[in-house]
Each structure stands twice: as structure tokens, then as C-alpha cells.
Design a protein around this nucleic acid. Structure first.
Lengths: 182, 182
DNA sequence: ATATCCATGTAACGTGTTACATGATTGT
DNA sequence: ACAATCATGTAACACGTTACATGGATAT
């Protein structure tokens, strides 16, 4: 149940239209909470009905651009959610199910698929590193060169992405090493 | 779309009833692909209708135990799926959304929540390590002490869980260090 | 004017979650 | 007989995905 909150956070940072929100999602929050434009429009509608956001151009219908703005109630909701507790989601990965299935079937070789994933993760890691260079220059590992509390939080989020991709790379390296080459 | 395949793999390993499947799920495949018993019954019904599995005790209705067995068609389906390609799912983590929101709000301290997650991940890691000791004794890191291809695949799956939890621990350590203590 | 693209929106479906209901089994 | 428990199942809903439809804006 974090999509509405992710939307509120993004809108709070900068009010915008649904389409722009969808685009911005792809480039920031979407790195760890994805949503299609249909989901976003749906949630924006609900948030509007609930009085959490305000939309310019009511009753404008289809092709008309609508701008959204977070209302105080929306900010309060986000803050409350932000202070609440939630359990971490367990891992959910299809490739691991495939590995388990291959272990049962006994005659499926997953080397190529693991390599393919490895390259995808490699590319994702490079992407994150590019963002790091752009947004947090002068930082090679650990903590940012300085900056506000907000910078540190943003950096922490990016850092999580980097560490996960690195974990994937480490895993695929040792797995390819152990399952095939020997 | 991997739940039916996860079920097929688990059933192929050992035919059983829906309830037992649900229980076994919690302890093995469920570590990286969770499902409630309702989901499992639903999928078992579909797999049965599709002729992928066979169930003893047709028309037995509610409280009657039903045993399921994978049919050749089911095995073929699993094998085909196992050879297919799929993109890795991007990270999806609520805590990171919270961090982003906190960065926007500016007055929410997430230290306690991060610590709490850290402990949960620590426990999960220990759980995986217990499994490692039990199922792959004599292995401290890297690859198992020997064994069949199937052992190596199973080990790789477990290893993925371990590496992810370690990545979480590394992240939370450096984040707690960078965001608060200074 | 018409082709193209963009923003918004609808519809249908699949997957995941929560709550509850019913029939069998077991223990007392 | 009765309670407790277990296995199976239903219902309703939230979330996510895919495909498509409509209105407006832009360019030729």
C-alpha cells in the first residue's frame, strides 16, 4: 500500500500533471517502487476524491491536462504513514524459482539465463553509478561529501540500489563459477 | 506468473495435499516466492482444470483431503517455462519510499525504523545460515563441499538469500552511521 | 484536413490479501 | 456429545498489467 504515498511524496517535491508524474516516477521513485501510468491516474483520482490532493481543471475530461497539488491533509497522511512501521518484503525473484525448478527437473541448463541477468544487473549498477556521479559528485563509497540531512537520505536510497546490484553481481559470479565451469 | 510453476516444481519434488504444499512453501520456495493457502488452492484448481496435475479424490468437496500429482503435461509446462527468459524484477521496497518521503517532508526521523529492519534482516540471515549448516554442512562460503548439480543449484538459491541479507546489513550499517550519529 | 503524437481515461483480467465458512478429524 | 483443530473452499476487495479508446495539440 505505498503507491499513494509514493505519489504524494513525489507531488510534494514538485506539483505536476499525471503524465509528468509518470515520467518522473520512471526516473526516481520508480527505481524502487514502479507504477504504470494507469495505476498513477487511478490513484490520483482516489487521492483527489479523498481530498488529499487538489487538481486544477476539474471536469476537464479526457485530453485536457490536469495539474495536481498536495493539500495539507495529504501531507499529514504522508507524514503519518512515514512514521508508521512495516515489515520488509521478503525476496521475490523468478530466477530463483527457475533454479529450484531446474534442480527438480534435472535437465535444464540455466547458465545463459544467469549470465543474461548478470549483464542486466551490471547495466543497472552503471546507471546508478551515473546518477551518483551526477547528483553526488566527489563521493566514491560510504557517505556523501557533506550536504544536508535530505541529501544524506537521498544518497542512502541510491546507495541501497547500488548495494543490491553489487550483491546480484557477486551472486551471479560465484554461481556461474560453481555450477558450470568446473 | 511464476506461482503455478513454483507449485509444479514443489509438487514434482514430492506430491502432496494443498495444505502440506502451503506448509512446505513457507519453508522452502516461499523464501523467494510467497503464497497464501488461498492462492495455492486457487492455482491448484486451475492446474487441475488444465490437466497439468491429477488429484485423488475428485468431487470430495470441502473438508476432504486431496492429494495432487504432476502429470506429464505439467512437467512439460514447467520445463518449457524454465527454459524461457524473463527480466529481473526491479527492487520494490517500502522502506526506501519512506526514506524518500522523509527527505521531502524534512521532519521525520527514520533511525528507529531502519534499526528495526536491520534486526529483522539479521534474524533472516541467521535463519539462512542455519539452513546452510543443516543442508550443506562443511561449507563456509562460496561453493558447497561437493555434491551433485542439483545440490549446487539448491545451494545457489540459498546463497542468494544470504547475499541479499548481507547487503541489507551493510546498507543499514552505513546508513545509520551516515544519517544520525555524526 | 489530416496525420501524428500526447495526456487522460476505460475495460478486462490476473495476482495477492483478508476475512470468513464449511466439512472432516481428533481428543476428551 | 462436544470442543478444538485441520483441510478445503468462497467472497470481496486491493493492487498490478495489458490493451485499447477518446480528446486535445502540433506539424505538414
Amino acid at each position: 500500500m505505498s503507491l499513494p504515498h509514493a505519489i504524494l511524496a513525489s507531488l510534494l517535491e514538485k506539483p505536476c500533471s499525471g503524465a509528468e508524474l509518470a515520467r518522473r516516477f520512471d526516473k526516481s521513485i520508480g527505481h524502487f517502487w514502479q507504477a504504470s501510468h494507469q495505476q498513477i491516474y487511478r490513484e490520483l483520482g482516489k487521492l483527489d476524491d479523498a481530498g488529499m490532493v487538489e487538481s486544477t481543471g476539474r471536469d476537464t475530461g479526457r485530453g485536457r491536462e490536469r495539474h495536481y497539488l498536495v493539500l495539507p491533509a495529504g501531507r499529514a497522511l504522508l507524514e503519518q504513514w512515514c512514521r508508521s512501521e512495516a515489515a520488509p518484503r521478503p525476496v521475490r525473484d523468478e530466477l530463483l524459482v527457475r533454479l529450484r525448478a531446474a534442480a527438480v527437473l534435472g535437465d535444464v541448463n540455466l547458465t545463459a539465463e544467469i549470465s543474461r541477468h548478470r549483464e542486466l544487473h551490471q547495466r543497472q549498477l552503471e546507471h546508478y553509478q551515473d546518477i551518483q556521479e551526477r547528483d553526488f559528485p566527489g563521493t566514491t563509497a560510504g557517505r556523501p561529501a557533506g550536504g544536508t540531512e535530505q541529501d544524506r537520505l537521498q544518497y542512502a536510497v541510491l546507495r541501497a540500489g547500488i548495494l543490491f546490484e553489487e550483491a546480484w553481481l557477486a551472486w551471479s559470479a560465484e554461481t556461474l563459477d560453481g555450477t558450470v565451469k568446473r
